[in-house]
Design a protein around this nucleic acid. Structure first.
Lengths: 241, 241
DNA sequence: TCAAACAGCGTATGGGTTGAACAGTTTCGT
DNA sequence: ACGAAACTGTTCAACCCATACGCTGTTTGA
């Protein structure tokens, strides 16, 4: 401990800053920028032009500053991404009572988050979640599962299951959303693909493709998969296994 | 149809090449390289140095050729990545009979694939799967579900559920595997994080963190989550809902 | 007051993707 | 047999990106 600010020497990128621990400044000119401003600009670029657009160069240009000035606020691009991610995720919603209702609301909120900010799905996962907002989401779901009598270990397993499902659904929803934009190309893909599926020993996929089942309503799938997971958890809670 | 080779004009990157449709060459010098060779080299780099290392520059250098020569074989980096991915995924294993056993084997095989080639998890997902090996995996699981009496739509939902779970587990397993390498840093993170979790209103996560539950055996989690999913599917199959 | 600390800039390096022009080689059509 | 077309790989060049180093000028604590 050296005074007010902790040693963020060896901590992973973004950990300290995401929790609001900033190096105290004593001498020198006041910073013209702030980490919050930089992160907010990064989110703007992500929202408007996707994940690839959130770069130090672009942010610097937008803020009227040279690229390298960024490194006065952020140690690396990785750090920036971690901060942008946590801020863009934001806090979780209030969950209704009852673990089933809570889980449904939690997954739905996450799906809506990914629908609004699909570029979040492009952020490579660097390590276990450690930032405040992401952990707030986890905490909320864990609290909803707390009354079920499950062990800590099992609750963590359920959390992972639901999180993975929401994430996966977000990815699929984006794919299909993008595919709807180009029906012409989709048809061309079908013309190329279907004969090869037929001749190549893909009977199930051939059937799915020709029945247009491949591009069916996705809202159904959300409810479908979630119901499966919740039923499976319920089996465990009721001790029927 | 214009002769032997189809028009791959507007098809998405990698579609034609992954199915072995190459433009026929009539005049000019024989190509010194082949797409197969390039893709294989890309996989080598992925295996040895991770996804970031699979670049046109590196592959060209390794093959003793200028960077731009790559563009004679591949239209873009995106196309290369699609091909590398499909080849690295490879064919699925034979599945045992019985949908539960088959699903277990399928997920396990996928987890092992990701354990052996973790960089596959870093490949951004561009669209619906269209390449032969990836579709072979899907086909195999769909065939295993075919005898259960589920509708096509429901089978697709189950497939998505299992696939998302396997993928998510692969991601988590890699994270924890990397975390084990640096227990010193993990302890430092804990020292930073735990007080903030306690004071910040994260009781569940505080408990998990202090109980070391956060870094528990992951093999349990695979069986745990899979059992939940399979139980949920079984509820549907038995029509108990 | 004055020097330490610090912000921001310019310059530079190394890595990456992609385009365009060009020289050499093979083969088709005549 | 010969020229033209097609295809190869090359170099040059543009552009984007992250990051390191050193400089200048500002601010402020001692």
């Amino acid at each position: 401990m050296e005074g007010m600010t902790e040693d963020r020497g060896e901590l992973p990128p973004g950990l300290a800053l995401s929790w609001g621990v900033q190096p105290v400044q004593r001498r020198g000119p006041k910073p013209g920028l702030s980490v919050e401003q930089i992160v907010a600009t990064g989110i703007e670029f992500g929202d408007s032009h996707g994940f690839e657009a959130v770069s130090l160069q672009r942010i610097a240009a937008r803020l009227g500053v040279s690229t390298n000035a960024m490194y006065r606020y952020v140690r690396s691009k990785d750090e920036l991404i971690v901060l942008v991610q946590d801020k863009a995720v934001g806090p979780p919603p209030e969950l209704p009572s009852g673990w089933r209702e809570a889980a449904t609301a939690w997954v739905t909120a996450q799906v809506e988050l990914y629908a609004g900010r699909p570029w979040l799905l492009d952020i490579p996962i660097r390590g276990a979640p450690v930032t405040p907002n992401v952990m707030r989401w986890m905490e909320a779901m864990l609290q909803a599962l707390d009354g079920t009598g499950l062990s800590q270990h099992d609750m963590l397993g359920c959390l992972m299951l639901l999180d993975g499902f929401a994430r996966n659904y977000g990815v699929l929803a984006r794919q299909l959303g993008a595919a709807v934009d180009t029906p012409v190309q989709a048809e061309q893909v079908g013309r190329f693909l279907v004969p090869r599926l037929m001749e190549g020993g893909y009977p199930m996929l051939t059937a799915l493709y020709t029945n247009q089942e491949y591009e069916d309503g996705l809202d159904d799938d959300l409810e479908f998969g979630l119901t499966r997971i919740l039923d499976g958890i319920e089996v465990l809670i009721n001790g029927e296994s």
